[in-house]
Design a protein around this nucleic acid. Structure first.
Lengths: 195, 195
DNA sequence: GTCTATACAGCGATAGAC
DNA sequence: GTCTATCGCTGTATAGAC
């Protein structure tokens, strides 16, 4: 195996571990997930994980970056829509699309925020705040382009509504909640006027 | 020590353990809290806990019941207000009052819901759903008395907004979020008309 | 770079003396 | 009813062979 394919294999394992961490940590929660769980899901030998990630926290950090990347991809796709109103409704539609996952597991970032808040060491609690900020900033931009008053307030309300309905959908195990609330949010966005 | 004071002492320890569990589980999270932590906070010898609670899950269950009781007390107090609009705004005001705690720790019931969802054994994930239902039902009653259309939908939106703003307040460490969002919710309640 | 073996710590739960 | 001692397990992390 030459150095190029060896390098590729190494990147491959790291990426598989990162993707597996994002998935398994969402499913089982941070505290109940062992490094062996993630290794198994990534199809990487358990004892090999520490070569790529020195601590469990580094794996959590990688998973968080994965979610941040997903969010960036989503908003970049929405940016191609013709106007801010459509972009915001596209975001809501993307949320509603995830309703079954939300009912089983909640919002990936939101549940991570709750768990990492209780994990003071390493400052991961602040890192997850930045990911939420990232979404908040994008939403605020859209409201600003719409010309409404207090775009930051509108952004807080919309992202907050999403986090809240994810939590209720999960706690009550009912994806329909997401559908109903999503429809309400879309109506509100449609009803907005400049001012 | 006669049987009466022995009984009282037993009840006292059980209650202290329950109150301590509610507090410490909220502060540290379920998974990161040890039975010894709760015992220390309750000022009960560590080895004595198992006499009152056979498992850790029973302690969690007791903490959940404590939160449910708090909620019942709060809504009973709000029931003395003259009309449903004031009662709903009183609920929002009670939430905003807790903004500093929310910024540090999030909503007690909401964070518990996220954590217990990942703890399938014992059915505590369903129990926390019932506590949320309890609040949802009370709120729905108020909207019904107000005569608005779709009182259940309004209840989901209000409680969802609370859970969402609690999570954002906590993740971003900013109690002001709670104040702003609370003001917005109060305005919405004031603006409601029958139909 | 890969993998095995294991050190080391913490915790839930139990047994049993008092 | 109270408390100590400890079992047994799990999980993070490391040492070191290959």
């Amino acid at each position: 195996m030459d150095s190029r394919s060896a390098g590729r294999a190494a990147v491959g394992k790291r990426q598989r571990l990162t993707a597996a961490a994002a998935r398994v940590l969402h499913e089982q929660g941070v505290e109940r997930t062992t490094i062996a769980d993630i290794a198994r899901a990534a199809d990487v030998p358990a004892g090999n994980v520490y070569y790529y990630f020195k601590t469990k926290d580094e794996l959590v950090e990688a998973a968080l970056a994965e979610h941040s990347g997903y969010l960036a991809t989503l908003t970049r796709r929405l940016d191609r829509l013709p106007n801010p109103r459509e972009r915001l409704k596209g975001l809501v539609a993307a949320w509603v699309d995830q309703r079954d996952t939300a009912a089983r597991l909640g919002c990936p970032t939101g549940t991570l925020a709750v768990e990492l808040d209780k994990r003071a060491e390493g400052g991961l609690d602040l890192a997850v705040g930045q990911v939420i900020r990232q979404l908040l900033d994008w939403v605020e931009q859209q409201y600003r382009q719409l010309g409404v008053a207090d775009p930051a307030g509108h952004a807080l309300a919309l992202v907050g509504a999403y986090q809240g309905m994810s939590l209720l959908t999960n706690a009550l195990r009912d994806p329909e909640i997401m559908t109903r609330e999503g429809a309400r949010l879309a109506r509100e966005i449609d009803g907005l006027v400049q001012g």
